[in-house]
Simulated assay, not measured.
Amino acid sequence: MASASLLPLGLFSGNLFGNNRITEGRSRRVTAQYLSLGVKSKGSQIVGYEDGSALVSRRVVIGLALSVSTLLFHSPNAESAGLPPQEIPRLCDDSCEKELENVPMVTTESGLQYKDIKVGSGPSPPVGYQVAANYVAMVPSGQVFDSSLEKRQVYIFRVGSGQVVKGLDEGILSMKVGGKRRLYVPGSSAFPKGLTSAPGRPRVAPSSPVIFDVSLEYIPGLDDEE
């Protein structure tokens, strides 16, 4: 089956705390509102009432602070922002990157540029045929914004029919099954309106050039005939 989408999920951002502030009095006690919750306690936790608000001791405040910090450490946004970046699977590893430095660049009339990581030995896809491919999509800095390898599912689409960006269509049409290629797609053949990224991934600016590492895995139907 085809991958659900070539595009990443939308980015969510929000202000967790807003402009709320905690203030201290001379006795280092904080006014806890929302008495309607009906919180009751013994001993020194609730020390009195003042103007319809409960005054709580520092011990309670510290407990509340620890609870908030626990929520922060377990929230998805905190994990995506604070944890070390996960290792992203690639079609071209470090040794491949070094070899690519010596591979000649091919430039087409549309402005698409590419380097063959590996030349395939199978057939090339005719226009309109479905192809099964793996891809890693990157911004010019090399940061990944989408990848079929992470989804663990090949991406199946009809090549040459406008189902993917123009540069990817053009680049795959001249590949052979079993081949791997790095495509340098100009902005005019990429995402004219740009793309919002998944959390922790770079955003693609409108008409920004992008890079695709792509491997042509097989051509459904055509491979079966041969």
Rank of each mutant, 00 (worst) to 15 (best):
S13N: 10
V103N: 02
L173Y: 01
D51P: 03
S161W: 02
V39S: 11
V165Y: 06
L173H: 00
A190P: 03
S161L: 06
S161A: 13
S67R: 13
A54M: 14
G221E: 02
G221R: 05
A32V: 15
S208E: 15
L35P: 14
P125H: 03
E226F: 09
Q163H: 13
E150G: 14
T196R: 09
R29E: 13
S41G: 14
K151V: 09
N19L: 05
F191Q: 04
L91Y: 05
R59D: 15
D224E: 06
E150Q: 15
N15C: 08
K118T: 08
Y155H: 15
S53I: 03
E99W: 00
D213Y: 02
V127N: 07
P206S: 08
L173R: 12
F17L: 15
L149H: 04
P89L: 10
E97C: 03
R58W: 07
Q86G: 10
S36D: 15
F145K: 12
Y218T: 13
E87V: 15
S141A: 13
S57F: 02
K166G: 05
P199C: 04
K40S: 09
K115T: 03
G122V: 01
L35C: 12
L91Q: 10
K40P: 01
N102K: 11
D146S: 15
D116T: 01
P125C: 02
G179E: 05
F73E: 15
L64G: 14
K151A: 14
F12M: 07
S36K: 14
A32M: 15
G122T: 02
L216S: 06
A137H: 11
E87D: 13
V47E: 12
G18E: 08
V119H: 09
L222W: 00
Y155N: 10
L183A: 10
N20C: 05
A54I: 09
M1A: 13
V127A: 07
T108G: 00
A198P: 01
K42C: 08
S67G: 12
A65E: 11
G120I: 00
V139Q: 07
F191I: 08
D51F: 11
A137M: 12
K98V: 12
L100A: 03
N134H: 14
L216I: 04
G43M: 06
V185H: 02
E97L: 11
G10S: 07
R90V: 14
S44W: 06
